[in-house]
Design a protein around this nucleic acid. Structure first.
Lengths: 338, 338
DNA sequence: CTGAAAGCGCTTACAG
DNA sequence: CTGAAAGCGCTTACAG
């Protein structure tokens, strides 16, 4: 057999078709559960395909059909375990359905997200999953102009035509603040990092709960633009008790900050929750292991990933999801640190 | 202008070529830093391309050239921060060089890795990055048969033709064990999870160091196949002090286990390091925040990612790296828990 | 240094 | 239900 000069040596659909004694097009249809092909032929083609170890070429398919099976999912940062969980849940739904999630990390930078979007969209993705609603105008237009089905994760909106799965950031911020109020704390601080849109929404929830209770004091809000970490949490706690010794509770915006805060309290010999109560957010791994165990808000990131992926699956199939906006519930986890 | 029926409405190279008044092929060359094209033409083509907002179609390019710019990188698990750091470092080198790292998570499962490999290799990747050497025979053959340049991360070997960047797992296991011996501990336990190949190599290093010192006791090795977590670390510590009260130090195979062990010691009222010393591995975020701060081994995952990516870049360019196997150093981090 | 032709491997209308 | 033709958007030899 003579190989043409540009041949890649790859097993192609033609090889399969030839082996099965049908035309290339029939082979193509047989392989995609084509309802229009005779059952016997389907079997013969599939047999030949496995026999030869045929693997379809995604590039050729994408080019011919002008769509791929890739699904970019853009998250802010993998060092936040929250997003690792989200990705895992998405993967569990999309991968078995024949789609390849492609992870993109924006580092909380809208410019970087825009660049990623531009690159990924060039791959004719089957669908798109992004985090939240805060992005550049150009990024917005890229998404809209691409015609690629998109589901927004983590936050929700009622805007028409937007598909999203998330939870109320501000309500969850209020809920923990209210819990602290209910436990009798009055000088409740809020310590946050990164200051991304969702963090600021939670701060808003904190504020409104305290204002409603007549306990709001702007000086107890400690907002740092640094990235979230245990070390930062420790520093924020130290700063709070030094500059505002009257503080009796600290609501940390993410569990890693709270872990750091809790350990810093140990180091300073401050009793928790006796001298200062400590609360976290997200219920990340290890929060139940802290001493004392950390009170926090459990966020439904696995459900968000799963339901978001399911919604996208429907959109990619041309179906209309029953709901275009799904708001899930958070769960207050009361442990010993408050 | 009449659109053909199957047109996708996309701006193509033909559009750019037409706008610049050259042929499609010249446009292609001009866009790829083609040295053979006149400087003036290059400028005209690039101008036209940006003018029209041309984005090359990766699928078409992959099909025509039989290679893409995708670089799959296969890691065991994202919930281990170690691999998040590794990915970040790889991304920082590959992305600016025009390659797209595609993250694949194997969940420490060789069968899953083989499946991922099969799928990713179909995409004609430009290069490949994998973790360690432990995989199915089929996976090995897939890699070899693909002809795709591959760099192995985390472990090293002298096998000819294999490109790798890592550190000596067993030596790092020995080093921490020796540190504990030097500090005067004699009943030193080893607590590990997951039991992946690298964990077992570190266990081997622990064993040989203790044997050399005449202190080895197999009953102090606690190997759990569960996945690593703070909660598991806590349980392992409890079990150790209950069944082997004479234990005076515990070397945890990963920092998250050590964090959990440290907190469990607090809970049980065991002084650290007075009653029992605790050491970790990897030097993950937060280890310096523990109370007492955790002694551990800092592993060079950022350097591994960076140098591994650079080595792959050379291979993808058809160059021969100066070294085919790079073994990096770990650094013992002595803090207060030992 | 530039271009006309052929081809990468698949799918989409269009016939039968 | 099956197939011959054309095409997706690009790059690779081959000429000039």
């Amino acid at each position: 057999m003579v190989r043409k000069s540009r041949s890649t040596g790859r097993i192609t659909l033609d090889d399969v078709a030839q082996a099965a004694g049908v035309s290339r097009i029939t082979a193509s249809r047989a392989l995609h559960g084509g309802r229009v092909v005779g059952a016997e032929l389907v079997a013969r083609v599939q047999e030949a395909a496995t026999q030869l170890g045929y693997v379809p070429d995604p590039a050729a398919r994408a080019l011919a059909s002008s769509r791929s099976t890739q699904v970019p999912i853009l998250v802010p940062m993998l060092s936040n375990a929250l997003f690792v969980d989200l990705l895992e849940a998405v993967h569990r739904v999309l991968y078995p359905a024949g789609f390849q999630p492609m992870i993109g990390v924006t580092h909380y930078d809208p410019a970087e997200e825009e660049l990623l979007l531009r690159n990924y969209l060039a791959h004719r993705p089957a669908g798109l999953l992004v985090t939240g609603f805060d992005r550049t105008e150009a990024a917005r237009q890229l998404i809209a102009g691409s015609g690629v089905p998109c589901v927004y994760l983590m936050e929700t909106t009622d805007a028409p035509g937007v598909h999203c799965v998330g939870f109320s950031q501000s309500a969850s911020g209020s809920a923990m603040t209210q819990h602290l109020l209910d436990r009798g704390y009055r000088r409740i601080a809020f310590a946050a990092a990164q200051l991304d849109p969702r963090t600021l929404q939670r701060a808003e929830g904190y504020r409104s709960a305290l204002k409603a209770a007549g306990c709001y004091d702007a000086r107890l809000e400690l907002l740092s633009p640094e990235r979230s970490s245990m070390a930062l949490g420790g520093r924020l706690l130290e700063e709070l008790v030094r500059t505002h010794p009257e503080v009796d509770a600290v609501f940390f915006n993410n569990d890693d900050l709270a872990h750091g805060g809790l350990l810093a309290a140990h180091r300073l010999g401050l009793g928790v929750p006796g001298r200062v109560a400590i609360a976290g957010f997200n219920d990340l791994a290890g929060s139940d292991q802290m001493v004392p165990a950390l009170s926090t808000v459990h966020t439904p990131r696995l459900e968000i990933g799963e339901q978001g992926a399911r919604m996208l699956l429907q959109l990619m199939n041309g179906q209309v999801p029953a709901q275009s906006s799904i708001e899930l519930e958070c769960r207050l986890v009361e442990r010993q640190s408050t």
